[in-house]
Write a protein that binds this DNA or RNA. Structure first.
Lengths: 212, 212
DNA sequence: ATAGAACGGAACATTTTGTTCCACAAGCTA
DNA sequence: TAGCTTGTGGAACAAAATGTTCCGTTCTAT
């Protein structure tokens, strides 16, 4: 029971703190696999009682909001890191996209859209994330590194496309996503290719998912 | 009883025949939007009572099987048409991929995997579809039209990636899929590009979805 | 007019699931 | 040691969802 290995922990509070982590990780894994999964599935995965969940989050909806919020923050961190990079515009763009795909922030975003009513802070973060993405995109576009006719929204769609790829366990899924990310990046990085057909996704279209 | 074809139908049998169609279309639309949707949702969408459904299919599972089976047959038709084309290998490969994406046969296949126990005939069709796909792929590969290191399974994954794209209504979804299909095809059609990272999906990996 | 096919949709029986509640364990304090 | 507080497990509960059945009704052909 007291196998508190790595951190010098003194007992109950330490376990509680660790549970904070364990629960979030379990919740993430469970809801990525099945967006409609019951709360009890999260508890089982975390090897924790249900009350441990309800002590932290007033309701399922709050837990989902928290997961989404964390994902957004991860995204923002990756974006800010990319913007801080003073090197080649294409290189930092590609690194950013790779980071986001690896962080897998969109598996939740897509699946959970509409499962809870967004938060005020969530709106703020979302807007912030959009701005940063635009900057990264524009920098690459102005450097002439992008296929003509591309729009920032295309980048978001690429994230969603890749987030939908699943194969075997988590490690294999990430590997396979890298494979198709390579494919997509190559296709994005063709300044002399013809533009893509049809209009890119508009902001309204992308945001519509959060209704209801 | 065979008067139920083109002419303006009056009568119960005519309505019944039309309902066969209406129900399948409604079921498809409903389950693509939400794989876990209740039977009643299908009835509502088809503007039909529940008994009209149960008159045709003994259970929900049978309906799902039927939908999947129809999708496979559509896929096979597209594949055979591509193989019958004696023209350029790449062109008929690309046309095949476009046809399948437009037919949207994978939205169901992906979402419904595991929701019913496969049929004997379904296994047969599935094997047949695989063979045809291999032929189309190999022809393009031997013509030197494909990026090195690609595998047939990559084509399947491309279908699944695109099937996950959704935006607005159905028409817009198809339009946007065309957009990213163009992107992906361009990336596949690069004989001198470096191979993609990581091993391609294996047959076992792709088939594992049908377990449980 | 009558038989029977096709249908609509309420009713039923489960199953599922979010949430509450309470008894108990572990640390903390006096 | 005896309370007090925090955190936990998980049974219990109430509400909702859902696959399937059932029965009365409508429409067609004879």
């Amino acid at each position: 029971m007291e196998t508190t290995s790595t951190p010098p922990l003194s007992g109950r509070k330490a376990q509680a703190a660790r549970n904070d982590q364990v629960i979030l990780e379990a919740a993430r894994a469970v809801f990525v696999a099945d967006p409609g999964a019951p709360i009890s599935a999260v508890a089982e995965r975390a090897k924790v009682g249900i009350s441990a969940l309800y002590r932290r989050y007033p309701s399922k909806e709050d837990l989902l909001r928290k997961l989404c919020s964390d994902g957004l923050k991860t995204y923002i961190v990756a974006a800010e890191r990319a913007l801080a990079d003073e090197g080649d515009a294409w290189t930092s763009f590609a690194a950013f996209v790779r980071d986001v795909v690896d962080a897998d922030t969109h598996s939740l975003t897509i699946n959970l859209a509409g499962a809870f009513t967004p938060d005020e802070s969530l709106y703020r973060d979302s807007a912030h994330a959009s701005e940063l993405t635009v900057q990264i995109f524009d920098r690459a576009a102005q450097a002439g590194a992008l296929r003509p006719g591309l729009d920032v929204a295309d980048v978001t769609m690429v994230f969603e496309l890749l987030a939908s790829a699943h194969l075997g366990d988590e490690a294999r899924t990430f590997e396979i996503r890298r494979r198709y990310l390579t494919l997509l990046l190559d296709a994005l990085h063709l300044p002399s290719a013809p533009p893509l057909p049809g209009p890119p996704p508009s902001v309204e279209e992308v945001n519509e998912r959060w209704n209801t």
